[in-house]
Design a binder for these strands. Structure first.
Lengths: 317, 317
DNA sequence: CCCGACCATAAGACAGCCTTGGCGCTATAG
DNA sequence: CTATAGCGCCAAGGCTGTCTTATGGTCGGG
C-alpha cells in the first residue's frame, strides 16, 4: 500500500492551522499538542512536494498550493462529514431501509404490527414488503433483493426423498436449505382441520388424521401440500388431493362448498370468515413454525436487527 | 487527536472491495495483501458502527450503509484526487502563480525577459506584476500581497542616521530592513552622470563627483535621492536638488532641457532616447546592486524558485 | 531586560498497518 | 468423489507512523 496519499487527517490539520493562524492554535482546536501539528504539516508538505504555508512574523498564511488544497479541503471534508452523518443515522436507526419478503398469510397480522412498531419507534426507517414463498423468498434473500424473509417449517419434517420430491416442492429440506442463513424462530401455530358443516366430524371437536383417509382433500401452497402428504403417509395413507391453491380464502370456500376437507394454520382460518365450515382439532397435533430468515451478516445491520426484534415482539402475543 | 474519523484510505479500500466484489480482488487492485483489506474493512465498519458489506457466497455486496458511504466516497475521492492533481501541477510548475513587484526601471528589460522565459518553459504558470519601490514593495511582500520584490541597494550605504532620515527615506538601511528576507543578488550596474549637451563636462568622458558641486541636480526616486545626497556629502558638498521625479524619461528630459545634471542607472539611460544629453562616467564609480527579495519560506515554492532562477539568468547577460 | 508565546527537534511509548504462514470453507474440474 | 484452486479468517511479527513529554531557540512586548 502506498503511503503518499493525502489523508483526511492532513486536511483537517491544514484547515485548523489556516483557521487558527498558528500551529499552537490549531493544536488547541484539534485537542492535541503542537508538535503533533508540526509533524502532520511536515508530512503533508512532503507528500505534496511543496510548501503549503508561509509564516511571516507571527501569522501563517497559505501559499498558492496551500490555498488550492484548502479550496478542495472544504468540499472533501464536508463530504466526509455528510457521509459520517448519514451512516451514523443508519447505524442509529434514524434512517435505514429493510426489505421484507413474506409468505402470503404471514403478512396479514404479524407483519403489519411489527412494521408499525418499527416505524413508530424509529420514524426515519423505511420498510418495503413483497410477498413470496420459499424457495423464491430465500432466493431473493441470497440475491440481495430482500433483507428478511418470513418462512415456516414443520418441526418434524425430513427430506425423506421421494415423498417430498414427487409432490413437486422440488427442493431440499428447509433445515439443510437454510443451513447458511440466520434463523429467528418467531412462533409456532397449530394446524386445524377444516370440514364442511354437516360433515360427520363437524361436531367431533377433534379427529385423528387417519380417520380422514378417504376424504377428498383441499391443499394449500406447494410446501403445505408436501407436508400434508408427509403427515398422512406417516399415518398410513396417501391423501387424495382434489384441489390445491395457496389462496386460503379459496380453500375455506371450497371446504364450505362441501368439496373436501383441509388442514390449515389457525391464523389463516381465523382471518377468513368461515362460511359453512367447522374447525376441528387434529390429533396428533400438527404444528407449523414460523421463522424469520436473514443472512448472517445482515443480522448485525441495525435496521435489520431492529426489524427482527419487532417481529419477535409481535409474535410473542 | 481522536482516531474514530473516517479516513480516505478506508474509502479507497471500500471502493476497491465493492468494485472488485471480493477482498482478494480489492487487494490485487490496491497492490497489497488480502489481510490488509480485511483489517481496513473491519476498522471502517467498527468506526461507523454498522456492517458495510454482506457476503453471500462468493460475492460481496454493500449494505444500506455501505451504499450510502459509497455514494459519498465517490465525491470525496474525486475531490481528493482533484486536489492532489492541482497541487501536483503547482509543484510541477504546470500551474502556479508568482506575484512580482518591481521598482519602475527594473521592469523595463529584466522582468520582461525573465517572465518570458518562465512562461515559455512552464506554460501553465501565471505571473502578475505591479510596480512599487521599497519600502512599499517589501511591505507588500510581508503582507502576502506579493511573492518576489525587486529592489536595489547601494553596496556602501550605511544607515548613518541623520543623513538618511533627513532626506525622507524614513526607514532603516536595507541591510537591516531585509534581514529576515531571502536576498538574491541579480546584478550590479553603474550609475552614470547625465549632463546637457554643451555642458562643460559633456565631452569629458568622466567627471569627479565633487566637480559637480555647484550644479543644479535632478534627482530620481526618494531612495535614489537619499543615496545621491549621501554620495555628495561623502564628497564634501550637499547637492542643490531642483527637481525630483522617479520618472526616468522625465529626468532625461529635464537634463536635456539644460535644467541640471543627474546621476542615473545605466540601463535607465539606455532605455530612453537621450535627447540633448550626454553621459559621462562618474568617479569614484557609483554602483547599484539589484536584488530580488522574497520570504524565506517562499524560496521553496516551486514557482517562486523558478522565477528567481529566471531572473538570475536574465541578469547574467 | 526579562517574560511569554510560538515553533522546531529529539527521544520514547504506543497504536496502527502490513506481511507471512496456516487453517477451514466452497466451488469447480478431472 | 477427490484434487485443486480461490477466498477469507486468524495469529504472530516487524515496521512505520503518530502522539507525547521535554528541551532549546527565536521573536515580540512589558
Amino acid at each position: 500500500m502506498v503511503g503518499s496519499m493525502i489523508e483526511a487527517r492532513h486536511l483537517r490539520v491544514l484547515r485548523a492551522v489556516v483557521r487558527a493562524g498558528s500551529y499552537s492554535g490549531a493544536a488547541r482546536e484539534l485537542g492535541c499538542t503542537q508538535p503533533a501539528v508540526s509533524q502532520q504539516m511536515k508530512a503533508l508538505e512532503q507528500s505534496v512536494g511543496t510548501p503549503l504555508l508561509v509564516r511571516i512574523g507571527r501569522e501563517a498564511r497559505p501559499t498558492d498550493a496551500g490555498e488550492a488544497l484548502m479550496r478542495h479541503a472544504a468540499g472533501v471534508l464536508a463530504g466526509l462529514a455528510a457521509a459520517e452523518e448519514e451512516v451514523a443515522a443508519i447505524a442509529g436507526l434514524r434512517a435505514g431501509r429493510v426489505r421484507l419478503v413474506s409468505f402470503p398469510s404471514g403478512s396479514s397480522t404479524l407483519v403489519p404490527t411489527a412494521v408499525a412498531r418499527l416505524r413508530s419507534g424509529h420514524p426515519g426507517t423505511r420498510v418495503s414488503l413483497v410477498e413470496a414463498e420459499p424457495p423464491r423468498s430465500v432466493e431473493m434473500l441470497r440475491a440481495g433483493e430482500a433483507d428478511i424473509a418470513l418462512a415456516f417449517r414443520y418441526p418434524g419434517a425430513r427430506a425423506s426423498a421421494n415423498s417430498v420430491t414427487e409432490t413437486g416442492t422440488g427442493g431440499t429440506d428447509p433445515e439443510t436449505e437454510w443451513s447458511d442463513l440466520a434463523i429467528r424462530p418467531l412462533f409456532t401455530d397449530s394446524l386445524v382441520g377444516l370440514v364442511p358443516e354437516g360433515h360427520r366430524f363437524a361436531d367431533a371437536g377433534e379427529v385423528g388424521i387417519a380417520e380422514l383417509a378417504g376424504e377428498p382433500w383441499i391443499a394449500g401452497c406447494p410446501r403445505c401440500r408436501g407436508h400434508l402428504v408427509e403427515v398422512c403417509e406417516a399415518a398410513g395413507f396417501t391423501p387424495r388431493i382434489d384441489f390445491a391453491t395457496d389462496d386460503y380464502p379459496a380453500v375455506v370456500g371450497l371446504v364450505g362448498a362441501g368439496l373436501g376437507v383441509a388442514v390449515l394454520p389457525a391464523p389463516a382460518v381465523e382471518s377468513v370468515r368461515p362460511r359453512g365450515t367447522r374447525t376441528v382439532r387434529v390429533v396428533p397435533e400438527v404444528r407449523r413454525e414460523v421463522v424469520a430468515l436473514t443472512l448472517p451478516d445482515l443480522e448485525r445491520v441495525p435496521a435489520v436487527a431492529a426489524m427482527l426484534d419487532r417481529l419477535a415482539e409481535a409474535s410473542a402475543v
